[in-house]
Design a protein around this nucleic acid. Sequence first.
DNA 1: GTCTTAAATGCGACTGAGTTGCATAAGTAT
DNA 2: ATACTTATGCAACTCAGTCGCATTTAAGAC
Lengths: 137, 137
Amino acid sequence: MRLSCISIFGYTYAMNIENLLKKKHIKVTTARVTLLKLLEAASKPVCYEEIKGNIAMDKATFYRNMITFEEAGILNAFESNSKMRYFELERTPHAHFVCTVCHGVECIESIDIQLPGYEIGTIVIHGRCRSCVEARA
Amino acid sequence: MRLSCISIFGYTYAMNIENLLKKKHIKVTTARVTLLKLLEAASKPVCYEEIKGNIAMDKATFYRNMITFEEAGILNAFESNSKMRYFELERTPHAHFVCTVCHGVECIESIDIQLPGYEIGTIVIHGRCRSCVEARA
DNA sequence: GTCTTAAATGCGACTGAGTTGCATAAGTAT
DNA sequence: ATACTTATGCAACTCAGTCGCATTTAAGAC
Ligand SMILES: [Mn+2]
Ligand SMILES: [Mn+2]
Ligand SMILES: [Zn+2]
Ligand SMILES: [Zn+2]
């Protein structure tokens, strides 16, 4: 069941999803491999609604595995103002922008927030994205 | 029905809630006056759950008026990761911190985010607040 | 003040993303 | 292969927020 080389969480080369899961002591199942391949292929965070057409599992399985991955530090999650939860593979900390017009989600690497004494987890910025601002200019 | 002087949205002195609503062409009702007094007294954003014990109106009335106020630019709203919506009177733009441990909400004035081309609305930072970080230090 | 009209309210039913209980299926270890 | 443990599918459930509709209330005209 060798699948593809991924580069997440320090397992940078010659490491496949199966080994990643084994290293984390998480049972290797087809649902989990499917989900990790999908998250690997995505360039931005995804929510259940967006991908349910591409996966054959029940939504309970999807969400339970998202929780498992989150607890294992394999992925990060946040929720948009539309009450939907977005997931992406763990990588260097960064903010996310959620457009209130087109509902698109983008990763924002360019900002760096410091809050002495606090421990920052996720940062979500809502507003109008570049293309929606231009469209209405 | 003169109530109290508030200082929001440019109506800085000798302006009461009744006049604010009239200026915005919003009908003056007891529910709306109650809500604005309550929001004025609060030092941080509030959600329905927190204040339902202090107000005599139905939750539908609460939420419908929050939408009315939002559309009139009288207040700002955002939602925390616990899927609850928080409201506060409109004032100079600032971020909000939501603690993942104690679920407390704080206004953060000290950060200034720029994203050229984007139009920023609300910023929500999740993580562990100062006291929760200290408690586990 | 009374009348008229449009908008606000209360109530209960509804929505929908996410969760949970449980019987069954699929991994894993020996 | 067998035994044991964990994951999955399904259906039922949760619960913050929304909606439809009958009734009440505000605001403006007279
Ligand atoms: Mn991202
Ligand atoms: Mn604030
Ligand atoms: Zn957009
Ligand atoms: Zn805290």
